[in-house]
């Protein structure tokens, strides 16, 4: 079962061994940004989730940051 890790501190994700990694926004709000307009923020969240889905449908041989 593939897993995608959405995480802000990509170096930690790489160190601990995640295989599919999607960089996130910030530690307290990986999939959002309270400073943005709500509609914009949701669009940002959607783009990150879509990238995560791309990662899950991509064959990889080694740790990959999408």
């Amino acid at each position: 079962m593939p897993v995608v890790h959405i995480a802000t501190v990509v170096p930690i994700s790489l160190t601990v061994g995640a295989n599919r990694i999607v960089p996130a926004v910030a530690i307290p709000h990986p999939l959002g940004n309270p400073k943005m307009d709500p509609a914009e923020e949701k669009a940002l969240r959607r783009s990150l989730v879509e990238k995560a889905l791309t990662a899950l449908t991509t064959e990889i041989e080694d740790q990959t940051v999408f």
Partner: peptide
């Protein structure tokens, strides 16, 4: 997740 027939997981970290 496996027992429930889940195909993939999204894991989010802070």
């Amino acid at each position: 997740l496996k027992n429930a027939g889940v195909s993939a997981a999204i894991l989010t970290s802070t």
